[in-house]
Design a binder for these strands. Structure first.
Length: 972
RNA sequence: GCCGAAGUGGUGGAAUUGGUAGACACGCUGGACUCAAAAUCCAGUGCUAGCGAUAGUGUGCGGGUUCGAGUCCCGCCUUCGGUACCA
């Protein structure tokens, strides 16, 4: 008989006596599907609870061990809440539109819809393995026309509304039109990009196209020509939060500023509410701070400066109106509208030269260089509103076109950048703030007293600001203003795989919404996904599609990734409703997300946009609450160890190239073509899983390297021809390279992706779930390591063995002892408290302690084990379900009632009391629990150890903290 | 630079409100079982000195408050995350 067969038979024979996840788990996986155990109703007598995970983008690499970390935590919480008697909504879906699928389509010709569906299938399999309690009947997929129909519908709502700053809410654009007819745009308080004023008569005189142009400047979804982040490699523009350090977040390609006509969302209209309502949320301070910074509110004044010999004015924004007497020049952003008109003919050439220089620079140039001060004089002058002096107007790169008004009054004494500019170009500096009373105060701190400032002299900065704000308004040269760093969100992508805009243009190029009864406007089938000419989306090539409406052309750009994810949490409430995006009954019942779990990488992007859309929908009366996500937990990233060769030399084409430096230097090293080149793409010199071959100093010797290479290196094909390496030699003649160990993101390109499948195959889903939780606090980032998994596996087997003594079912029904009850109720309390504060790692510890204790007590009593099975069910849903059935139950353990904590079980006659002398623990005494302070003092003083420690010393004081400890204060 | 989080044994981490530092687990050491190995079980394990009871020392560094500090305060250092000419 073969060995395998013997093992098989042994397994079958011992089926129940030993813990066999590979038998239990598939069985329950199937049964749960059959019984629709996790299906949720939209009506119930129970209180509601909504637990949501950030839905994944289904990438080709499959789910890695980092994804489920948050899903497991939220699943435990959802299951816990269900046991506690809540009706829990816990859905899952896919953020299915996105660049990678389209890039893949360009390379391979596989349609994104097809590859996305394949990836989703794989994700679903992996998710099912782990035993999540998702209600899959509510699955959403953002690329499904039945879903994006409603994304388009919400877009049209944004298009047909403007933001009224008097009523602080979005209102129909038709109301604005009525206002224009009656009053023009005089005194309208609305969020707008319209700068020119017009009267009712002027409005009446405009043709429809001109009126549409103006209305566009008020719509919440609007078109404008602006400087956008253009990414040549991806052939599309990107939103600010999709750009990191001048490179695209996806793919790391360079990004440049380019003027383009684009759709935008007027998120800035909601800046104040997005900021203020943060206070109502249970988010971490770190996350709130990120959002606050991104919104970037600053209070100050808008001031108009007259120009010499011209009718226009320069509008500036400043937070320091008190320093206005120190304003010795002005600086405009290079793209400022007035640059052309203000430039004096004599300076035309130098200004143009400077503009050319600026446009030649990419974002990355601007950021990476050590801030060289550049600028040019326009030859124009402004008039100082208080002194009447002429002050020169410059242009300079350091003034940003899209912040504030794109122009500043420069106060070189109190602004670091203005001072550098003044020094570089020899401009006047008047030191208007005397900071001598505040030694150590930095330039930008708002302290000191004013000098050389006429009527402000002697005032403290704070007082002077207040005074000046009044003065500016009184003299009608400007007014108080609040400015936000937040920019309107670029909403156009020149890509195929996204939601088409439900917009068609007439022959004059005026946009018209597509009737909502015609939605969804679906994507055409394409075979070639390359961008069309002129930086256009591949959709532009689908002629029939573009011209499907007579006399109109469809918009060919598509919406960005954050469109679909800005409202998906609402769709889950009523996922299959064909008539509306979410029914009123559903949203009134589920309200908002009670617990949202996801990564910090979405701290500003997704979370900001989703809050914005939600507030907009609230204004329209479509959702009941002002915020979508009440409580938010950020799970940490699970990283992988990366190993990089630190000072590796290698030969190429007869040359020896020596690379010395840290790992990132080596990564970036590009060797000039005359000497040698890296084969391939210049990727980092990675050594996959080399850790077992390193010596204590992170050195890899040649001998070990060859051993490593033979066994592993070829699998990963990252090293190239091993004969091309040569080695650093130490004094003993040993050849080696130094390996730099880093923690890094898991990604397909780094060969470091760890899939959960292998772990689940080997140890079972319960073990995988508990191990991921056991790794540490949920918010913390940590490298993946399977070192400790045996501990969890042992725990599960030990737990199982409480039910089986040897080969026999050992559960018996005798009455538990007080000690056994104490173990149980200690665990109930600890686990319940810890789940409530999302400390799942300590829950696992508590279960381990509990089982260790019960094992020691040889306890197999039903009254102890039954509640314990329920308590463990959220963590290990499979094994608990099996044991629950073995205990004789016919209903699922996941519909059981959570065990009740009984504090009387923890009471005992004797308590341990630590005795400290001068804060150091010297003894632990067993004392009666109800002893008075006097009795305790007597007992403590009678202790041999205390007596010995008190010899020759004076007892000054005895501190007794009831139930905690005793401290004796003693002196020589 | 600014904002935020964190620094605890060989390792992951625990200590919830200022009250026994190192729970729980991994690893390691020794032992039991075994022809042997795996698995399992038992004991030990911060560091230093000591056969030992025990003593000293110990939560990134330097100070402080307190009967008592990983926890609070002041000043630094390091790591990670965010942000970067935001007027």
């Amino acid at each position: 008989m073969s060995r395998v067969l013997v093992n098989q038979m042994f397994k079958i024979y011992t089926q129940n006596m030993h813990y066999h996840p590979e038998a239990i788990e598939p069985k329950w996986r199937q049964k749960w599907v059959e019984s629709q155990l996790y299906r949720v109703d939209n009506s119930s007598d129970k209180p509601k609870f909504y637990v949501l995970d950030m839905f994944p983008y289904p990438s080709g690499a499959g789910l890695h061990v980092g994804h489920p970390l948050g899903y497991i935590a939220s699943d435990i919480f959802a299951r816990y809440k269900r046991l506690k008697g809540f009706n829990v909504l816990h859905p899952m879906g896919y953020d299915a539109f996105g660049l990678p699928a389209e890039q893949y389509a360009i390379q391979t010709g596989v349609h994104p819809a097809h590859s996305t569906d394949e990836n989703i299938k794989r994700y679903r399999q992996q998710l099912d393995q782990i035993g999540f309690s998702f209600d899959w009947s509510r699955e959403v997929k953002t690329s499904d026309p039945e879903y994006y129909k409603w994304t388009q519908w919400i877009f049209l709502l944004l298009y047909t509304h403007y933001y009224d700053e008097k009523e602080h809410k979005a209102l129909p654009i038709s109301r604005l039109e009525q206002y224009f007819v009656a009053n023009g745009n005089q005194d309208i308080q609305a969020a707008t990009t319209q700068s020119e004023a017009f009267k009712a008569s002027e409005w009446a005189a405009m043709n429809r196209a001109e009126q549409e142009d103006i209305l566009m400047n008020y719509r919440l979804a609007y078109r404008k020509t602006g400087y956008v982040n253009w990414c040549e490699a991806l052939g599309t523009v990107l939103a600010n939060d999709e750009v990191k350090d001048g490179l695209s977040e996806r793919g790391g390609h360079p990004v440049e500023k380019k003027a383009m006509m684009q759709w935008s969302l007027r998120i800035t209209a909601y800046a104040e509410r997005l900021l203020d309502d943060l206070a109502t949320l249970e988010w971490t301070d770190a996350l709130k701070a990120m959002q606050k910074n991104w919104i970037g509110r600053s209070e100050g004044a808008q001031i108009f400066f007259d120009l010499e010999n011209r009718s226009e004015k320069i509008e500036i924004f400043t937070t320091r109106p008190d320093t206005i007497f120190g304003a010795t020049f002005m600086v405009l952003a290079p793209e400022h509208a007035l640059v052309k008109s203000i430039t004096h003919p004599d300076f035309q050439a130098t200004v143009q030269q400077y503009l050319d220089y600026v446009s030649s620079r990419s974002d990355i140039d601007r950021m990476s260089e050590n801030k060289e001060v550049t600028g040019a004089f326009t030859g124009g002058y402004a008039i100082h509103p208080f002194t009447g002096k002429r002050i020169p107007v410059w242009i300079g790169e350091y003034v940003l076109g899209d912040y504030g008004t794109g122009a500043i009054m420069a106060v070189p004494s109190d602004d670091e950048r203005d001072r550098l500019f003044a020094q570089r170009f020899g401009l006047d500096i008047i030191d208007v703030v005397d900071k001598s009373a505040y030694p150590g105060a930095s330039v930008h701190e708002k302290v000191g007293s004013l000098q050389y400032s006429d009527f402000l002299n002697g005032m403290e900065v704070k007082e002077a600001i207040r005074y000046m704000l009044g003065k500016i308004e009184e003299q009608r040269i400007g007014k108080r203003k609040i400015n936000y760093k937040l920019r309107d969100a670029n909403f156009s992508r020149q890509r195929y795989w996204g939601e088409p805009f439900p917009i068609r243009y007439d022959q004059q190029g005026v946009p018209h919404p597509i009737e909502s009864r015609d939605l969804p406007l679906t994507l055409p089938d394409l075979e070639n996904f390359q961008p069309a000419s002129g930086g256009k989306s591949p959709l532009a090539r689908a002629e029939n599609w573009v011209h499907q409406y007579d006399g109109f052309a469809l918009e060919t750009d598509t919406m960005p990734g954050f469109a679909g994810s800005s409202w998906y949490f609402l769709r889950y409430m009523d996922a299959n409703n064909p008539d509306t995006f979410v029914s009123k009954e559903a949203v009134d019942y589920w309200q908002d997300v009670d617990l949202y779990v996801g990564g910090t990488e979405h701290a500003v992007g997704h979370l900001m946009y989703a809050r914005f859309w939600h507030k907009f929908l609230y204004d329209l009366g479509l959702v009941p609450g002002i915020e979508p996500f009440k409580k938010l937990i950020n799970q940490g990233m699970i990283t992988a160890y990366g190993y990089y060769a630190e000072n590796l030399r290698f030969h190429k084409d007869g040359h020896e190239v020596v690379l010395i430096g840290n790992a990132s230097d080596v990564q970036k090293a590009s060797v000039s073509s005359t000497e040698a080149t890296f084969s391939g793409t210049g990727s980092p010199i990675r050594l996959a899983y080399v850790v077992d071959w390193l010596d204590g100093q992170n050195r890899l010797t040649k001998e070990k390297f060859l051993e490593y290479y033979t066994s592993k290196g070829k699998d990963y094909n990252v090293l190239g021809d091993v004969n091309k390496y040569c080695w650093v030699r130490d004094e003993q003649g040993e050849e080696y390279i130094t390996v730099h160990v880093v923690q890094e993101k898991m990604s397909k390109s780094k060969f470091n992706v760890q899939n959960p499948d292998d772990i689940v195959d080997r140890y079972g889903a319960d073990c995988f779930r508990m191990y991921e939780m056991f790794l540490g606090p949920i918010e913390q980032s940590k490298p993946w390591d399977t070192k400790g998994i045996d501990g969890v596996n042992r725990f599960l087997r030990k737990f199982w063995s409480l039910f089986y003594l040897g080969n026999d079912w050992s559960v018996e029904s005798s009455t538990p002892s007080p000690e056994e009850l104490k173990v149980l109720h200690t665990t109930i309390r600890k686990v319940t408290e810890d789940i409530e504060r999302f400390s799942f790692n300590t829950c696992v510890s508590a279960f381990m302690m509990c089982v260790n204790e019960l094992k020691r007590l040889e306890c197999s009593k039903r009254e102890i084990l039954e509640p314990l099975v329920i308590l463990l069910a959220p963590f290990a849903p499979f094994v608990t379900e099996e044991l629950w059935e073995l205990l004789g139950h016919t209903e699922s353990v996941h519909t059981a009632t959570y065990p009740k904590f009984d504090p009387t079980c923890l009471e005992s006659d004797q308590v341990e009391l630590p005795v400290c002398i001068n804060g150091k623990k010297r003894d632990v005494m067993l004392v009666p629990a109800k002893a008075s302070q006097e009795e305790i003092e007597g007992l403590v003083k009678a202790s041999e150890i205390v007596k010995r420690n008190l010899e020759g010393k004076v007892l000054l004081k005895l501190i007794y903290v009831p139930g905690r400890m005793v401290n004796l204060v003693v002196k020589e």
